[in-house]
Design a protein around this nucleic acid. Structure first.
Lengths: 204, 204
DNA sequence: GGTGCCATGTAACGCGTTACATGATTAT
DNA sequence: ATAATCATGTAACGCGTTACATGGCACC
């Protein structure tokens, strides 16, 4: 989804061929380290966009070199882009692999959950160090965008680390007391009543 | 990937059929609001796991009811699970849709980036409110796991909001000065030299 | 005559989603 | 009866990845 919309955005700037889009995307995110987009994805996405009528193959340049298919935004594509700009991006719902892992490690007695936490913390610190270092190499004036991106990553990594500390603290609080095992229980939640759209937040 | 591993974890606990796995997964993450797994995904993942030899169809119960295929973990499946427990989960690399959107809005003069930020902030606050409310309805003793999950979500949302504030502040700092437009430029990064594995972090 | 950039793809697979479909049991 | 729950799937699509493949051009 992100790449698709990014392509629309880049084409709104000016018509491009696939290779240029790939290069532009990399420039936008600051290199492969941050977001490694494969050319294959660009080209297949362009095909899908073309099939949806959001993009057209404008012309094929062939002057002294490999053929270049120039893609341009259609009015429908422009509409899609405007819609994207008008709505918020859904907040990366909490599909949290680590949480799952931790819970499953609690359910399986033969797995050491403290170890799981320890491993994750080490990885987070390592990543934090990598990103922090990368950030310090950038010039505040020229690379503002990249700095902002890295700052966001740093803030999230720090949040993850604080969360890990919190988890450990909570586990130690109740260290003797049997943990609320997320055991494989069926019929875990009461039957959903009707009319509960996503909006009834205040009700428990 | 997460669901796949979660299934392995649940089957390590005991052999199940698809429906039970689906229910167990929902119990684990605390309902559809947090992580909506469709039955279709469970069943297709089970098929893939079976094809990979990580899971076997143990038997088909048929006593007085619809048929139930009971799946069990194979030794190879158990190995995979142990490997998962042994390594850290990769830290959700910063494939940040909103960052892309913001940068593209800067490149397109006809789009108001301040508006983009404003829309996103509103959505984040709304989500934060939803999650916070949901969290307050839980019992600290019985629902510890779910509380931890929601706490993580809250911490991430707060980080996102702080980041938005930061972005706005930076933009205002340099409000007159031309923004370092992430324009569609090609050849954005110098040619990669050889031997730069992911480890050389300290170099710029 | 390589190496590296420019430029384009295809094939196959994994994960996830939506939509559709079937049928049995149990509770009201 | 009919609704909900139990239980299982298929088909098609979207997004992303890996691996493979082709070829021209420029520079040393």
């Amino acid at each position: 989804m992100s790449v698709r919309n990014a392509i629309l955005g880049l084409l709104a700037h000016r018509a491009c061929h696939g290779y240029e889009l790939h290069a532009a995307f990399e420039a936008l995110v600051g290199g492969r380290d941050n977001w490694d987009v494969k050319p294959a994805q660009i080209y297949t996405t362009l095909i899908r966009l073309q099939e949806s009528g959001l993009v057209v193959e404008e012309s094929i340049e062939q002057d002294a070199g490999p053929e270049k298919r120039i893609y341009a935004l259609t009015p429908a594509g422009r509409d899609e882009l405007d819609i994207w700009f008008k709505e918020s991006v859904p907040s990366e719902v909490h599909r949290d692999s680590f949480y799952l892992k931790l819970m499953l490690s609690l359910a399986l007695e033969e797995v050491d959950s403290a170890r799981i936490i320890q491993i994750q913390r080490a990885a987070l610190y390592q990543e934090l160090h990598r990103v922090t270092t990368q950030r310090q190499c950038l010039d505040a004036r020229h690379d503002l965008a990249r700095i902002l991106l890295l700052d966001k990553a740093i803030m999230h990594l720090e949040a993850d680390l604080r969360w890990l500390d919190m988890v450990e603290a909570r586990f130690q609080e109740i260290s003797r007391q049997p943990l609320p095992q997320p055991e494989v229980r069926l019929r875990g939640r009461p039957p959903k009543k009707d009319g509960d759209s996503a909006r009834e937040e205040t009700r428990c």
